[in-house]
C-alpha cells in the first residue's frame, strides 16, 4: 500500500509538471492519476480539515448542542408542567363538585330546619291562641255562671221574700199571730227542698 502511495505520489508529481505545462498552453486542467493519491495535497487538506473541525466542534458543542438541549428540556418541562396543571385542574373540578354537593345538602338541611322552626313557631302561636281562647271562654263561662247564680240567688231571695210575706199575710188572714221567726224557718225549710 505504502509503496503504491509513494509511487502514486511520484507519478502525480510528474503529472503536476505536465499539467502545469498544459495549463501554460491554455488547455484545461485534467486529472492524471488518482487525485486522492496526490500526496502533495495531503498537508493542505489535513491542515484545513483540522482548522474546520476545531471551528465546527466549537460551534456544535459550545453553541448548538446546549441550546437545543435546553430547548428540548424546556419543552419536556412545559409538557410535564401542563400535564400537572391539567391534573390539578381536574382535582379542583372534583373539589368544586364536592363543594357544590355539600352546599346543596347543607341548603337542604337548612331548609328543613327552617321549615321545622317555622312549624314550631306557628304551633306555638297556635297553642298560645288556643290557650288564650280557652281562657277567654272559661272566663266568659265563669262570668255567665256567676251572673246566672246571681240571678238565681236574687230570684230565690225574691221568692223567699214573697213566700214569707205571703205566709205571714196568710197567717194573719187566718187570724193568727205572726211569729216571724217560725214563718221564716218554715219557709226556708220548704224553699230548701224546692230550690235544690
Amino acid at each position: 500500500m505504502i509503496s503504491l502511495l509513494q509511487e502514486a505520489a511520484t507519478t502525480a508529481a510528474e503529472h503536476t509538471e505536465s499539467v502545469a505545462s498544459s495549463v501554460a498552453h491554455g488547455e484545461t486542467e485534467t486529472a492524471t492519476g488518482l487525485p486522492q493519491l496526490d500526496l502533495t495535497s495531503f498537508g493542505n487538506q489535513i491542515f484545513w480539515l483540522v482548522v474546520a473541525m476545531v471551528v465546527l466542534y466549537w460551534i456544535v458543542a459550545k453553541v448548538a448542542l446546549p441550546r437545543i438541549g435546553a430547548v428540548l428540556s424546556d419543552r419536556q418541562g412545559a409538557i410535564t408542567g401542563d400535564l400537572m396543571a391539567a391534573e390539578e385542574f381536574k382535582l379542583k373540578a372534583k373539589e368544586a363538585e364536592a363543594a357544590y354537593d355539600k352546599a346543596l345538602a347543607d341548603a337542604r338541611t337548612e331548609a328543613g330546619k327552617i321549615v321545622a322552626a317555622n312549624r314550631a313557631d306557628i304551633q306555638k302561636e297556635l297553642d298560645a291562641a288556643i290557650a288564650h281562647a280557652d281562657a277567654e271562654i272559661a272566663a266568659r263561662t265563669a262570668e255567665s255562671e256567676g251572673r246566672i247564680r246571681q240571678i238565681r240567688d236574687s230570684a230565690d231571695n225574691d221568692a223567699r221574700e214573697v213566700a214569707r210575706d205571703v205566709t205571714a199575710e196568710l197567717v194573719r188572714a187566718f187570724g193568727g199571730v205572726v211569729d216571724q221567726g217560725a214563718v221564716d224557718q218554715a219557709v226556708d225549710s220548704r224553699m230548701k227542698g224546692a230550690l235544690q
Partner: peptide, 8 residues
C-alpha cells in the same frame, strides 16, 4: 480497481 486504473 481504481489503483489499477490510475495509479499503476
Amino acid at each position: 480497481a481504481l489503483l489499477l486504473m490510475f495509479a499503476v
